[in-house]
Amino acid sequence: MKHKDPSPSAPGRPRPRPQVWAPVLVLVLVAAVVWASFFSGPGPVGPAADPASSQTADVPGAASSEPEAGEGGGRSDDEAGDEADDEAGDRADDGDQAEPGSADGASAEAALNRSVKRFRAAQRRLAKRVSDQLEARSQPVSFRVASFNVLGDSHTGPGGNKPASYPDAGPRMDMAISMLRGNGIDVVGFQEFESTQHNMFTARAGEYSLYPGLSLGTKSVRFNIAWRSSMFRLVEAHTLPIPYAGGSRIEMPVVLLESTTTGRRAWFANFHNPADTPKLGNNARWRSMAAGMEIAHLTSLHAEDGYPVIVTGDFNERAEIFCRFTAGGVFSSASGGSTGGACAPPPSMQVDWVFGSTGVAFDGYAVSDAGRASDHAMVHAGATLTEVP
């Protein structure tokens, strides 16, 4: 339907021309304002902002001042240098991509490049950490190791078989701890370490950790291994059922310890083979069986993973146990003597021993009189896990 003109012109009179100049002027003014908003200098508002800088915070993998997950607190100078180089490269990339009028695709490509660079830098840092750890695990580690029969509490308590000149277990444990500290002992194999003495030791010598503790009962507690917690951490532990007096089996400890500073690892084992006494009878058969089991197990452990093995114990034998341990050429004694088939024991021997496999070097062997702390001396030596070729 057509609309009628509400005020038609009079017949014969010309129609006036429409006035269009006013709307055109308005459009020109609006266009001028918009044009000025794009090119009015620093501090653009709204859509005139730099596309590259406005999207950086929203792009996955954008640079952050927070440390990467898993990095820990400290970084090496090399790692810091890598990150500085990466950040400089990022800034250069940002400069290339930050021209006015850059497309969104170009900004996304720049962000992807930054993410790839950060990933490669993280790979370099990880590779360096792994390399440093492997190098540390090949370096020598030195410490002091001891074997110490501390004379069980039952021997000096009521009904015990030791003379009254031996103090009770409490004062004797204080003396034993003093000997460990005074000689800088880092690892010690205890024998006759009864549950009361275990409790005294853990309460008074908190710098040491123990295995098996009391976890295997009052029989196995007598053969604990203790190590200085600041020097070693426990990686793995198991026991070996060793025939004791009369052939009864008692679980004795074997532990894999790792250096807290280098990551070097070594096996430590501690044994007490049965003695011949009027009360226990002749136990030569069981000692021989025990020695065979101990040597076979530890030789196998050493061959299996290559970690050095250190053995402490009261073996109740002198030349016999020395010759058996050293015959295969794998173990040597901290006290000296030969290694291999032609057995030449050291000139002075105790029934208490420290042996080490290949990969262990001993020095400074000593026999320290325990006085009234025990009826056994403490034997100890410096041990070095030699450099891995």
Results as ranks from 00 to 15, higher is better:
Asp86Met: 08
Ala110Ile: 00
Asp104Ile: 04
Gly95Tyr: 11
Gly73Asn: 09
Arg118Met: 02
Asp77Glu: 02
Gly61Met: 08
Gly61His: 10
Ala80Gly: 07
Ala121Gly: 06
Ala80Gln: 08
Ala63Pro: 15
Ala106Ile: 01
Arg75Glu: 12
Gln97Pro: 00
Glu87Ile: 11
Asp78Gln: 12
Ala106Gln: 02
Arg114Glu: 12
Gly61Trp: 07
Glu71Arg: 09
Gly101Pro: 01
Arg120Pro: 00
Ser64Asp: 01
Gly89Arg: 15
Ser65His: 12
Asp86Ala: 14
Ser65Trp: 12
Arg91Trp: 05
Asn113Ala: 07
Glu109Asp: 06
Gly95Asn: 09
Arg91Ile: 09
Glu99Val: 10
Glu83Asp: 06
Asp85Ile: 04
Glu66Phe: 11
Gly95Leu: 13
Arg75Cys: 03
Asn113Asp: 11
Asn113His: 08
Ala108Glu: 08
Gly101Thr: 02
Glu68Gln: 09
Asp82Trp: 14
Gly73Arg: 12
Gly105Ile: 00
Glu83Ser: 08
Val116His: 08
Ala92Asn: 03
Gln97Ala: 05
Ser102Val: 13
Ala98Lys: 15
Asp93Met: 08
Ser107Tyr: 11
Ala88Asp: 06
Arg120Lys: 13
Phe119Glu: 08
Ser102Trp: 02
Arg91Cys: 01
Asp94Ala: 14
Arg120Val: 10
Gly105Asn: 02
Asp93Phe: 00
Glu66Asp: 09
Ala103Tyr: 01
Gln97Thr: 02
Arg120Gly: 07
Ser64Gln: 08
Asp85Thr: 12
Gly74Asp: 06
Ala98Phe: 07
Asp96Glu: 14
Ser107Asn: 11
Ser65Gln: 10
Ala69Ser: 09
Ala84His: 05
Glu87Thr: 13
Asn113Leu: 07
Ala110Thr: 00
Pro100Thr: 13
Lys117His: 07
Gly73Ser: 14
Glu99Tyr: 06
Ala106Thr: 08
Ser65Pro: 10
Arg91Lys: 14
Ser115Asp: 03
Asp77Met: 00
Glu71Leu: 06
Val116Ala: 10
Gly73Ile: 10
Glu71Trp: 13
Ala62Lys: 10
Gln97Phe: 10
Ser107Leu: 09
Gly101Ile: 07
Glu66Tyr: 11
Phe119Pro: 10
Gly105Cys: 01
